[in-house]
């Protein structure tokens, strides 16, 4: 574990990512301290460019873009992490059962997974939110529903490989139960792969969320980066910064998570070392 930590720290892009991510987390944490009150509140003249009265300018209604960006960080992180957590639990369960038991269970679960991978997942997410409504819980649910298949496939592959490893066969021939084999012997050996994939899934979830809210499918009570871009679109020609600012926030957050994910991958799976 110490080796893995050292490998991560030596990975420069991962450190950059980690610093960026910590900054986003801090932004989310201090949003209500820096900007008490509703981020939807009108605070000044509309269409003010950045670095005037307001550090990031105001939008077409005169709302403070900086406040929106800080509050948006909360929404983004909340939805990204919550949706990924649910999708990971579902994916690991389905993939694990399919990979460990094989046979008919595997065939059935994998057909289900393939089905969900065939569906244009963004369109499916739109449909779910359109049908269910756009509260934050339902958005999280919709994103989780469309995100679990890659995790299930990965975990299934890992479990199948582990199932045939001799140390697992040794467990079986000792008379160990399935639950103990899965939890004590297989899961810890697949954890690094799950962590890496999970971290990259957070990035994807954030991109889906921003896309949904760009199309107007965000929780109307919660500030979100995609929502600002979507509403600023109509004034793109005159006030391009309204769209540009939250976009940069999304880009940096997603990039930070991807970089951390890559760093974790190199740190936890030291396959391609310098030989």
């Amino acid at each position: 574990m110490r080796d893995a930590f050292l490998r991560f720290v030596r990975h420069k892009p991962a450190l950059v990512g980690l610093v960026l991510l910590v900054m986003v987390v801090i932004a989310a944490a201090v949003a209500s301290l820096l900007y008490p009150g509703d981020p939807f509140r009108i605070v000044g003249k509309p269409f003010q460019p950045p670095l005037t009265d307001f550090p990031l300018g105001t939008d077409m209604l005169g709302r403070d873009l900086a406040a929106a960006v800080f509050y948006g960080a909360r929404t983004t992180l909340l939805i990204g992490f919550a949706a990924t957590l649910i999708a990971t639990v579902v994916g690991v369960t389905i993939g694990g059962l399919a990979g460990y038991f094989g046979g008919r269970a595997d065939a059935l679960l994998m057909r289900l997974t393939e089905l969900f991978q065939t569906i244009p997942f963004f369109l499916f997410a739109i449909l779910l939110v359109a049908v269910l409504g756009s509260s934050i819980g339902k958005i999280i649910f919709a994103i989780a529903v469309v995100s679990w298949p890659p995790m299930a496939r990965l975990v299934r592959g890992e479990f199948m490989a582990m199932r045939n490893r001799e140390f697992v066969q040794a467990c079986v021939s000792m008379g160990m139960g399935h639950a103990r084999i899965i939890v004590v012997h297989i899961l810890p050996n697949t954890l690094s792969a799950i962590v890496v994939t999970g971290s990259l899934m957070i990035a994807t979830a954030i991109l889906i969320e921003s896309g949904l809210s760009f199309l107007g499918l965000s929780d109307p009570n919660v500030m979100s980066w995609g929502y600002i871009i979507g509403s600023g679109r109509s004034v793109l020609r005159t006030a391009w910064w309204i769209c540009a600012v939250p976009g940069v926030a999304i880009l940096l957050t997603v990039m930070a998570i991807n970089l951390v994910g890559d760093g974790l991958n190199d740190a936890l799976n030291p396959r391609l070392r310098q030989l």
Partner: peptide
């Protein structure tokens, strides 16, 4: 029914690297 009988017959495997769980 098999579980108590399993201990009467134990196995040694081929692969010295794959037959031991690396995390225990």
């Amino acid at each position: 029914a098999l579980r108590p009988l399993r201990r009467r017959m134990q196995m040694v495997f081929q692969d010295p690297y794959g037959s031991l769980n690396p995390r225990r």
